[in-house]
Each structure stands twice: as C-alpha cells, then as structure tokens.
Write a protein that binds this DNA or RNA. Structure first.
Lengths: 115, 115
DNA sequence: CATTGACATAACACATTTATAATATAACAA
DNA sequence: TTGTTATATTATAAATGTGTTATGTCAATG
C-alpha cells in the first residue's frame, strides 16, 4: 500500500480524525486518548497503529506510557497530491467557457444529428 | 457516512486517484476512463459512483454517454478539515521547546532506573 | 517479588469493499 | 425493427477493516 493510500485511508475513519483533532491540542497517552471514546483500549491502539503507519502521528516512550503527537509527514504527502488536483480544478474553471460550449454542442447534437 | 468519510475514503484508492488525475486533463466518458485500466467497465462505473458520492466528480448526459469531470465540493471539504489540522501542527511547533523539555525529562527518568 | 497499570498482540466475528460475470436499459445506427 | 454502443445494476465471491475478548509484556510500586 502506498503512502498516499495509507494516509487517505487513515483519514477516512471518523474515530481516527477525532484522535488527530484531540492530538492537535497536544500530546496524549493511549489511555488518555481512549477514555472519551466508546471503544476498548485495544481498538484505540489499532487506530493509533494505522495513524502511525500513515505518518500522521509519532510516539515516544515514557516508562510504560507511549505519548502520541501529530506528525507532519502524512499531511505533507496528501497536501502535495491535493495541490495537483486543486490546480487542475482551477484550470478547468478557467476553461469553463470551453466546457459550456461543449455542452451546448452536445445538446444540439442530441436534438438533431449526433456524430 | 459523513461527507468527509466519503471523500477521504474515495481518495484512498489508487485507481480512483488515477481517474481523478486523468480527469484533471479534461472531461472523459466512462469508456475512455475504463480503457487504460486492467479492469472491467462495471468496476470503473462503481469507482465513478464512489467519486460522485464523494463530491469529487460530476457527470452530465450526452446521449448514451456520461462524461465526467472534476468537481470542487469534495476537495473543498477535506481542504477545510486539513487546514484545521495544519494550523494545529504549526501551533505544536511553536511550543516545540515544551515538547523537548518533556522529552529530556522522561529520558532522565528512563536513565535513572531502567529495568 | 507480587501486583497493578499501560499498552500490544492474537483470535475471532461481522460488516464493508471491490472485482467479476451476467444481465438490463437506453440511445443510436442501419 | 434489429443490432450495437455506452453505461448501470445485480448476484456473488474474495479480500479487507473494525470491533471484542483474552492474554502477554514491560514498567512502576508497595
């Protein structure tokens, strides 16, 4: 699975996005993260593993605790891909007149004689 | 499933990202999209349905053809969410000194009495 | 050193995803 | 009408994802 696959896939789960949003306020341990969710600790641990694999969080070791915090790598990866798509979208808008012309052309064709 | 779920999920598939990349160059019909992929037409149709549901493409009707092009809605949705996370990341960097202090504190603890 | 707390991993159930083949439908062409 | 092209839908099987319980490991603590 590519980095991009992993990152988009990680972000597609609302629990994982909620975890990231909470980490946005600062470092938290697994237990602190698990508390507010209606979910067992192992389930949260697996979500964290997914987020780590996607480069969206990093963990450090502090005794028995594993505090997590946000990492930039994952965000950077998708940012880069998205900027490509954004640029294309803007380009498409720039030639909106062309698109509209194509649409009315096909409307005409539909009415009389296609191809 | 939320809009955000749908959009991130749609982008997590490499085939769908490839479809979007090709649509970035302009409108294409289902068959034109399906051609280069090693995949049947119904499979591509389903991918397109997913992309449409995520607000990443729109389709128009041209006789028996359904040309697709990029749409901004999906991108806008994730852009908004990402900017939130990005802002938080920058805030975390601003208090990097705090994080580093916490790290060396736990390093000390670890050295003092490991194992 | 026995117990407790923090976390990971394994085994399993269940739902979702994704591809295929077969078939349906709608527009066009002959 | 009949055949052909473009696309959607259905049924189904295989793969993947997500949660749970049970259990294991490592660190801290009394």
């Amino acid at each position: 699975m590519s980095q991009l696959d992993a990152t988009f896939s990680a972000l597609s789960d609302p629990t994982r996005r909620a975890i990231l949003a909470r980490l946005a306020l600062g470092e938290l341990t697994v237990m602190e993260l698990a508390r507010p969710f209606d979910m067992t600790q192992p389930a949260v641990s697996r979500h964290l593993k997914v987020l780590e694999g996607a480069g969206l969080i990093v963990r450090r070791v502090d005794g028995a605790k594993r505090p997590c915090r946000l990492a930039p790598a994952g965000i950077d990866a998708i940012d880069q891909w998205l900027s490509m798509l954004r640029a294309a979208l803007e380009a498409n808008y720039d030639r909106l007149d062309t698109v509209l012309a194509a649409m009315s052309r096909s409307d005409n064709m539909k009415r009389k004689d296609t191809r």
